[in-house]
Amino acid sequence: MIRQLRALPYTKKKELYGFLFVLPWILGFILFFAKPLFTSLLYSFQNLEMTPEGLRGVFIGWDNFEYALFKDPAFIREVTNSFVNMLYGVPLILVYSLFVAVLLKNKFRGRGFMRAVSFLPVIIASGVLMQILKEDVFSQGMRGGAESVYLFTGAGINGILNELGLGAQLIEIFNNVISRIFDLTWRSGVQVLLFLAGLHAIPGYLYEASSIEGARPWEQFWKITLPMLTPMMLLNIVYTIIDTFTDYGNSVILMIYNTAFSQVRFGYSSALAWLYCLLIAVFLGAVYMLLKKRIVYMQD
């Protein structure tokens, strides 16, 4: 057996090693992702009930899907909302994070610190602070990054503005602007980091050569930085789209979650989740196809 393996041509061996390297991941993937995923697909065609012996499902065909698409008043509305939010959110996040990344790439005192600060939202928003502040201190039952933002504008900034003696209307406008900026900073930590990494990967000689040729920084940005960043841009777009769709504060996610755990309709919840994921998949596929040809890869 071993001799047979040794005698294999190099390309075959390489294939074999390829499989070997992927194997542990595939095992984990199948056991903890693919299999549960398949089960949930089965659930989505069932009417599940909790019985003392465990879950019991009755096959009901397409009923769950039919209900979601044609009868449920909330599902279509929430999905539309979350698509609209995504459509204006993603470009904003990308432009903002690219801008911040370019600023943070500059060498200045305290750069490392500023980078850490710009990443703080990711550390905190996914973390316990929000939980404790929201559920225990303010007990308003808010969830997710987007909502948590309003907590601060509501409690903290309103107070300050009041003290400053601004009128109610002005405060409202100010609040809106600020909560938008918060929303933006709070959702672009990862993107800034990815762009920063991308910026550092651009070889310095491109800038050197172009500045010898007389290119201004502005031109360099459009002709070098941006094209060289396109692979990272694609990654970032995909990441941001998925992130906005799967955020805990996303109304569709909340709906799926509530259907499962408050209403205990596991079957219907699975069907909703599957429908939602299929929509996202179709959308992402379209975006990917559209952008694929515009990506510039550096040739060595």
Partner: peptide, 26 residues
């Protein structure tokens, strides 16, 4: 290889809630 990679990209799109209940059962 390509199929595997497509599967990975697809997997990214599934919200954790989809697999949560079956995962727990498993």
């Amino acid at each position: 290889r390509n199929i595997l990679f497509s599967i990975i990209v697809m997997a990214l799109m599934f919200v954790p809630q989809v697999t949560f209940i079956p995962q727990f059962v498993l």
